[in-house]
Design a binder for these strands. Structure first.
Lengths: 111, 111
DNA sequence: TTCATTCATCGTACAAATACGATAAAATAT
DNA sequence: ATATTTTATCGTATTTGTACGATGAATGAA
């Protein structure tokens, strides 16, 4: 993107954008749904369900984990993932907070 | 991305991901904040505030408009933009709905 | 008309994201 | 000890996103 200007915005804007970016791919939303439904959380189970290769699923899981939306622990040769509800809830609150802040200044639309 | 598999997911997953993607850049979140605060909505005003070139701002505005989050009308040589509150509200509802659906299945986390 | 203003679009450069095969690492099973 | 299972990581190909200068189109001002 030719010299990212990302850090010229406020921290709040960067944080919200980062949260949105993690959920900006259908595969990652699908993964969150699988993790919520199946308490098993095994990586291989996700690979079975999603129409993606194992390497690709691992990559998406890594991004979700880096963003803090999910947690992962090793169980022998397997990997167990599950949703980090505290983080998820905080992000949703921030997101809704931004929307509420926008609405507060809602005047007569000019167009 | 080597053959997008985006359309192999459900429509709901694609829609939510598309909404998140539009807000996945701090510049576009900043634009929404400007549009909410200033009812003027003039493109040039946004260019003044953001640390980006005019062409770049126009590009971000186009994406927000394509996604339906903002509306734009021509006013002489100027362009007036403002938030599409109905669309924005619907998206927020869908987004919150997804989160609620996830929480409904929240059992004992395994990790 | 002529000039200035305002904005969208084009072309382009570069960065980041997406996808997967191949391989490595770690644990279990035989 | 050897083989199998499971997952992460590497390397790579391709697509998409980001950013901006330059240009053009449309309007208003001189």
């Amino acid at each position: 993107m030719a010299i990212a200007k990302t850090n010229e915005f406020t921290q709040q804007e960067q944080d919200l954008a980062a949260f949105a970016k993690v959920l900006s791919h259908p595969a990652r939303i699908a993964i969150m749904k699988v993790l919520a439904k199946e308490n098993a959380c095994i990586c291989g189970r996700i690979v079975e369900i999603l129409p993606l290769a194992q390497a690709t699923v691992s990559q998406h899981l890594k991004e979700l984990k880096n963003a803090g939306l999910i947690k992962g622990t090793v169980e022998g040769p397997k990997s167990c993932y599950c949703i980090n509800w505290e983080a998820m809830e905080k992000f949703m609150q921030d997101f809704n907070g931004m929307f509420s802040a926008l609405q507060l200044q809602k005047g007569k639309s000019c167009c």
